[in-house]
Amino acid sequence: MRLAFILGEIGSGLRRNLSMVISVVLVTFVSLTFVGAAGMLQMQINQMKGYWYDKVQVAIFLCNDSSTATGCASGAVTKEQQDNLAKMLDSPAVKQYISDYQFESQADAFKHFKEQFSNSPIVDSVTQDQLPSSFRINMKDPQKYQIISETFSSQAGVETVSDQRQVLERIFEWMNGASVAAMVVAGVMIFCAVLLITTTIRLSAFSRRRETGIMRLVGASKTVIQLPFILEGVIAAVVGAVLASGTLWLVAQFWLNGDLSQQFLNTPFISSTQVLVIAPILIALGGGLAGISSLLTLRRYLKV
């Protein structure tokens, strides 16, 4: 009986305040979509890190005929210089940091270059001796790049030591920035949502002050009086959160794994199933915020 009664009260409250309830739904929808987008970006970053960091290498590029670096003053790398570098890579001092390395000759480099840019006219204007040969090193711990760089960049025959990680790091930094921006927007929107929920509950309490006054007089418990109002706010916010989760799922399903994954074949995108992990968080966040702000509003505006 009491449950049916409370549900009825909620229903009538939602109907009476329909426009406000819709605005609460929309504001929580938008704000939680931003929260979820920030979360998805972080997941995407982690996914890409996991995927790429295993594949990235530190490359020691050796001098070729056209090198201009100071270490290459004596012209292209000689056989002794190259053997010397290989010996250094095998020495225990360096070996402890690397798991393995390969030598990429100019011919290999040219082959890879042609594969990579097969659709581009640049292939026709590049010749084999323009490309450097290199040692490709897989690090045990990619963070220890600095040691390799210090050891090898001053050696004779070495043009430069480059860490592919740094290129990726820049991309990740950019993505991180985007997710922080999304969080900031989300924060502002959540603040709006809380204010709006507060106002809505206040209006709702005001428009039903006759009922609540009578409930008080006949001795209805605090729960029976307040619960319909609180649930009203929570229901509106949860509907918003569900809409936000749905939107994010659609984005992952049809944009990330549809259009984008076709354009960027080598990029691992998060799947739409992974997005479903965010949904419960959004729903809990929306419902929790609405519940707390309704409760605090009622404490002020609904005497019990």
Partner: peptide
């Protein structure tokens, strides 16, 4: 009936 509903009396 409202006075009875809100204190949880049965239908």
């Amino acid at each position: 009936a409202f006075a009875m509903q809100v204190i949880g009396k049965s239908r």
